[in-house]
């Protein structure tokens, strides 16, 4: 079980959080014309890297804040976490 540092609450056990996927994906702007291919890339396609991954977590059984984390998908080492409006230390 991972130990995750919520930027608002501090270190907590993984079972307080839910995973939110790749944090680098940007939702297309509302009302923007977008090709089916680009839209499909946004909705369905994600990289599955081995190693460092920038991702979202939700402190769902805590402060209910979404935040960013930089984690190694192979070793589970978490390098840094930060609030949504901050930049990860990488």
């Amino acid at each position: 079980m991972l130990e995750i540092k919520c930027p608002y609450c501090g270190k907590r056990s993984q079972n307080e959080f839910s995973y939110g996927g790749d944090a680098t994906v940007k939702r297309p702007t509302l009302g923007e014309e977008i090709s089916t291919e680009d839209w499909d890339n946004f909705v369905y396609f994600r990289d599955n890297p081995r190693g460092k991954h920038t991702e979202l977590w939700h402190h769902v059984s805590g402060c209910r804040q979404w935040f960013k984390a930089s984690r190694d998908t192979a070793t589970h080492e978490i390098f840094d976490t930060c609030k949504m409006n901050e930049a990860l230390n990488e």
Binding site: L56, R64, Q65, W66
Partner: peptide, 14 residues
């Protein structure tokens, strides 16, 4: 639904 709303407010349209 609550998590969904929070996601859009905090992540997509802060």
């Amino acid at each position: 639904v609550l998590s969904h709303l929070e996601y859009y407010l905090q992540v997509v349209w802060p």
